[in-house]
Design a protein around this nucleic acid. Structure first.
Length: 572
RNA sequence: CGGGAUGUGGCCUAGCCCGGUUCAAGGCGUCUGCCUUGGGAGCAGAAGAUCGGGGGUUCAAAUCCCUCCAUCCCGACCA
């Protein structure tokens, strides 16, 4: 490809609206053009990289016996009503009417469409297991977009759906996909780790997310470097040490205007770990829920929400509490209105003689003990894991890092097949719901993550497997110097004939201009040829971000072929 | 949806607080000509702007006020 003819434009200055490294470099390098918040046009250089990623994904999906399909972007609302999601999903589902006024939607995910296909095609256990996948545009009307391609409204996703006769078979297949995902990210040059994750609106039994570790990531990951425990903070657990001591008699004490854990602990001179913290929430029906946890810990709202199977859970306002005659700042388990749901964190069970509010202004109660002083039918782990907490598996210190979710895999179970009546006949002729799994990868997000994780502030070096052009040939000559131009042209032809994707910068532009554009184009192999390099004995070869190496012209093609092969080998 | 910020030729930025003789400016990019090729060259010329939109205040508005819109960041939300 001749750069002088290429549909392409670079920008010298950082665009005003971009803050993320990947966003800045993708805009400056002429990969993407923003059309609206979270909606982008992709230029040829980006499309080349995306197609390479898609090719890797297809190979790996085919290798786990997947069949590529194409499901619709626009669907009738009635299909989604079958699972109740037309009504259940919020405004991120874009709803509209067609010309006859029928309710429609833009697909943000495709469980309904694929289950509809499955119930049509699958009748017998003999057809299972089977997996279908697609690479297709999704639209999600996100309330907040972020970081260029990191979080967008319209994007291409690889989504795959598998169908099984049993949970055991799903488990087996799920592991195969897990491996396929590891292959995809490794081959794309992105180091991603899988963590246990929340199942969210997809429902189902188990899930993993594949995370690119990056400071700019929006997810918080909990990792144990000793035993390899890895989890999204949303579901992460920690070992909480016991704080038991001999039970003491309960005692009410005057704590004027001491409302926060810190204030009360200081006032009474007790450790915050001897405090019982109560946080009040409100659900979608305006019910008050009190979550109780040890004073030094925080509530993980997602765990709490999942445990209670609530759709909405917000912090209760002072007004909400007032309506139920709950005394803000002095809430406690003893003497509280019995009709209020109390969720008790496990940390309360192995601690005792705790201090909590007395449900009376300016009073707390000392030496509260679970069982003796109160009980609840809702006991679970609702604690938020912090840096330095103990690993639930090995007890060693946990560390916290940030990650970008580039893929996820879910065990769906029968959530969709049962509501949509996607069934099969088993060996004994009995009708059963098909057991499903689903597996997603955000293609554009993967591309952006590669930059986010490994690019410098000013330049991209693409992994060769996804590079828009494997080689960039930088011609440094003017028109009069036809000798050098002839050598460059010959080299370009040689490389192209060898089936290497080459971008040849043949533009009339200064060397600095070309080198800077090359830094944005990001070919992992760059060749510069000019009077200076010729005088030094040939061309200059740059592999990834290394210093220039002089290479005789006659050996250039072989050197590049070798370097190319080596780079591919690294990402096998 | 809450909090914060920003909208000035294709891109970046100054001017705004303190309205009027720098008031529509500078750089980049683009076009034409000359010249030039080792780290975003030089010279000369040219095109290109409803100062985000609307309303208001005023003799006078990019500048002050109201309102709407758009974009970004943080939070909420999220496969």
């Amino acid at each position: 490809m001749l750069l002088s003819k290429y549909f392409f434009k670079t920008i010298k200055e950082n665009p005003r609206e971009a803050e993320f490294k990947s966003h800045i470099l993708l805009l400056r390098g002429g990969y993407i053009k923003q059309v609206s918040a979270g909606i982008f046009s992709y230029m040829p250089i980006a499309v080349r990289a995306l197609k390479k990623i898609e090719a890797i994904i297809r190979e790996e999906m085919d290798a786990v016996d997947g069949f590529e399909v194409n499901l619709p972007v626009a669907m009738p609302a009635s299909l989604w009503s079958e699972t109740g999601r037309y009504e259940a999903v919020g405004d991120e589902l874009l709803r509209f009417n067609d010309r006859v006024g029928r309710k429609m939607l833009l697909g943000m995910t495709h469980e309904e469409a694929v289950t509809d296909l499955a119930r049509f095609c699958i009748n017998s256990y003999k057809q299972l297991p089977v997996m279908v996948y697609q690479l297709q545009t999704k639209f999600r009307d996100e309330p907040r977009v972020r970081g260029g391609l990191i979080r967008v409204r319209e994007f291409v996703m690889k989504d795959a759906y598998s169908f099984h006769t049993s949970n055991e078979d799903l488990d087996k297949y799920y592991n195969r996909v897990h491996t396929a995902y590891e292959n995809i990210f490794r081959r794309s040059g992105l180091s991603a780790i899988s963590v246990a994750s929340d199942v969210g609106m997809m429902g189902g039994n188990a899930a993993h997310e594949f995370m690119a570790v990056a400071e700019s990531g929006e997810d918080t990951l909990i990792l144990c470097h000793t035993c390899g425990y890895k989890a999204n903070r949303e579901v992460a657990k920690a070992k909480r040490h016991s704080m038991s001591e001999e039970m003491k008699p309960r005692e009410e004490i005057h704590t004027p205007s001491k409302e926060t854990i810190g204030e009360v602990a200081a006032f009474l001179n007790v450790d915050e770990r001897r405090m019982l913290k109560t946080v009040a929430f409100k659900d979608e029906d305006d019910n008050i829920i009190l979550a109780m946890i040890r004073g030094d810990l925080e509530i993980n709202e997602i765990k709490l929400k999942n445990y209670l199977k609530k759709k909405i859970l917000n912090l209760a306002t002072d007004e909400d509490l007032g309506k139920k005659s709950i005394v803000k700042g002095f809430i406690g388990p003893v003497g509280i209105d019995k009709s209020i749901t109390i969720v008790v964190d496990e940390s309360i069970l192995n601690s005792n003689n705790l201090v909590a509010g007395a449900n009376k202004k300016d009073y707390h109660i000392k030496n509260i003990n679970y069982r003796r002083d109160f009980v609840s039918e809702y006991i679970t782990d609702i604690s938020l894991v912090k840096q330095g907490d103990k690993c639930p598996i090995c007890g060693d210190r946990l560390s916290v890092t940030r990650g970008i979710e580039v893929g996820n895999i879910f065990k769906l179970g029968t959530k969709y097949s049962s509501s949509m009546k996607a069934r099969f006949l088993d060996e004994s002729g009995k009708e059963k719901d098909i057991i499903m799994g689903c597996y997603g990868i955000g293609v554009g997000r993967l591309l952006a993550s590669v930059i986010e994780v490994q690019a410098s502030e000013k330049s991209i070096v693409w992994p060769i497997t996804i590079a828009p052009f494997e080689v960039e040939l930088i011609g440094l000559f003017n028109d009069k110097n036809s000798e050098i131009e002839r050598i460059a042209n010959d080299l370009y032809k040689d490389l192209t004939d060898a089936n290497i994707s080459v971008l040849y910068d043949d533009r009339k532009a200064s060397p600095g201009f070309k080198f800077n554009d090359a830094a944005l184009i990001g070919s992992p192999i760059k060749v510069a040829i000019g009077q200076k390099s010729i005088d030094n004995g040939g061309v200059e070869l740059f592999i990834k971000d290394s210093e220039a190496v002089i290479c005789p012209i006659g050996e250039t093609k072989e050197k590049i072929l070798k370097a190319r092969e080596d780079l591919f080998k690294e990402l096998k």
